[in-house]
Amino acid sequence: MLIEKEILSAVNKLFKRSWWKILAIILLVYTIVAGLLAPVPRLAILNETIRVLHFHVPMWFGMIILLTLSVVYSIKYLRNPGTQHDIYAIEFANIGVVFGILGILSGALWANYTWGSPWSSDPKQNGAAIALLIYFAYFILRNSLEDEQQRAKISAIYNIFAFAALVPLLFILPRLTDSLHPGNGGNPGFNAYDLDSNLRIVFYPAVIGWTLLGGWLASLRIRLQIIKNKLHEKLEENYLHASPYAAAQPGSQPLESSADTRK
């Protein structure tokens, strides 16, 4: 329990540091510059669009990392219920799903010009779409529960199931059949990229940069949520200690109105 608290305060501290945000900016600037200018293998069909690799694929890497963090905090919540663990779980899932949506849209756009149509019902495309729908249900489930503790607990359990479905949908099922995606069946047009060091020196920094950017955005939302909770605590304190007349005063208004917006 004590260690848990220490980890949480260490992460909260990290959220306020700027070095990793600067690192994210540097890596992303490098990704944009080198991603557009660095030499790439000359491959038929893909041509210059191979550069999309540095922008489309990191969305999925980022999504997996962020959703993994989300499920870690859901498990932490179930082991040691605390509001902050719940906030971490939902906000990491939020940004993870944003990455997933961007990944699916960018993938469709890329596929339109290389595979011939935006949606070829490729097993990986379908798997990703199903996984995203499962996560949409996670948000709907959360919003449909009024009681805060009940919501945190049930959605934490659901999040574990969602993650357990995500892994086979993205990594196992597409490999069991033919897929247009590289590494999942026959797609000779792209096999060279696995070995190409020119792509690697941009691709790996891109993955780290995009993921850190996602972490930054998640950290902002987490901090805002913590601020909101703190504000609630203070308002409730004021409300309890106030005189009976206080309820009629305009000062007591924010409590009610902010309680409504919470849902």
Binding site: V29, Y30, V33, A34, A38, P39
Partner: peptide, 17 residues
């Protein structure tokens, strides 16, 4: 400075074609 260092990459890239 860092940007300048990174900027070396595109120069190299420009030469390749």
């Amino acid at each position: 400075m860092l940007l300048l260092n990174l900027g070396l990459n595109p120069l190299k890239a420009q030469q390749i074609p």
